[in-house]
Design a protein around this nucleic acid. Structure first.
Lengths: 206, 206
DNA sequence: TCCTTATGTGAATCCATATTCACATTGTGC
DNA sequence: GCACAATGTGAATATGGATTCACATAAGGA
């Protein structure tokens, strides 16, 4: 039973997407060339027509995952209104992504990824760093707008923001979805918001 | 070159410890029966005299790791004086463990662990939950002592506490130690402390 | 329509890892 | 000292995954 041929571009996209889906569904450790091929409906060796090997697939998948993560943060950065609700919305986006089973949160928040060398770690690291820069940007905006304390360090606070969701995500994955990620993330967020809000500051009307 | 024979008990301890050392040094994905055996200086098949298989080694390693994590939290719980410095000390213990290269943080904070089934995920999950219960206990003590806000939810706040260090740890591992885990964890901690401290409360003298 | 190239298939190869098994050696108890 | 059990060794086996390779087929261009 021969699969339909696809153009190089189309197949590369499909392969990278299938890799993310395998990760999302079964975890990063279950990613194999075979699993990706099966998901698409081709044989494993066909994959090598489009990617030089597993390492290249991983890089493509990480790149994709990173774009989506940055999109989320970019949306929050581009939004209008008071900073804290925007950050809350970003947090909720992450919770939604976790629950709906996207691969990005699983890689970043819970399991890491490794296909044979340091290079993927650095790729994931740079994805996270770029994301944190985005969040730090939002925090700086908030400071300029007078929503947030002027004395907070945007970079370190962005790391803290990431920590509002990471443990909840980890526990959600470990418990196969039983842990209440939303409630915990939001409770943590309220404490965080309390700490970063400029004192005496009321919420601006958006 | 024959290795010295060891009693069952001694060897089991040695194997479990070697497993944690392999993880600490090279990450959870590099754990193999062979790597453990090499670390000890015996052949891989000798391992099966003492453990039924890799899965049992993993369980022993997770158990050990869990005990150490709980010890740390237990020390903070048993300490005296104001709650917030005790939590800060606990946080610093974690940072130290990360930097000194213990396996526990690597498993819990960054990479997870998997040897073939759901069972290890649940083991790690339970380790973390027991740890969080310990931290929640410290928070309750703090509430009763009047150090902390009475309206904070101890369980959710314990999750937040975990989030003060987890992203920093993840980034530290991903960057092979380049990320400043201490500074970031402490900055996050200051915001956290601000949010949970009972208002108008001065630090008790210990 | 024909030819060439791109892509898919199926078999084979290689490698690493987990594990079993038969033999060897050491340590303990009588 | 001897016998037995426990533990270590080294070879073999099984499995899964990554990858290569020769052949097959489809698609695009002349």
């Amino acid at each position: 039973m021969a699969a339909e041929k696809r153009s190089r571009e189309a197949r590369r996209e499909q392969i990278a997407e299938a890799a993310l889906e395998v990760i999302a569904r079964h975890g990063t450790r279950s990613l194999s060339v075979g699993a990706v091929a099966r998901r698409i409906g081709i044989v494993p060796s066909a994959i090598y027509r489009h990617f030089r090997g597993k390492e290249e697939i991983l890089s493509a998948a990480i790149g994709r995952m990173g774009e989506r993560l940055l999109e989320n943060a970019g949306r929050a950065a581009a939004g209008e209104g008071d900073t804290i609700p925007r950050l809350r919305n970003l947090l909720r986006d992450h919770v939604r992504a976790i629950r709906e089973g996207y691969a990005g949160p699983r890689i970043v928040f819970a399991e890491g990824i490794d296909g044979g060398g340091v290079s993927h770690r650095m790729e994931v690291y740079h994805v996270i760093r770029r994301y944190l820069d985005r969040v730090a940007g939002i925090l700086r905006q908030g400071q300029r707008a007078g929503d947030l304390r002027g004395d907070l360090d945007p970079e370190a606070t962005a790391v803290h923001f990431l920590g509002l969701i990471q443990p909840a995500a980890t526990l959600w994955y470990l418990s196969a979805g039983k842990f209440d990620v939303l409630m915990n993330a939001e409770r943590s967020f309220e404490q965080f918001a309390d700490a970063i809000r400029k004192k005496g500051k009321r919420q601006r009307v958006s």
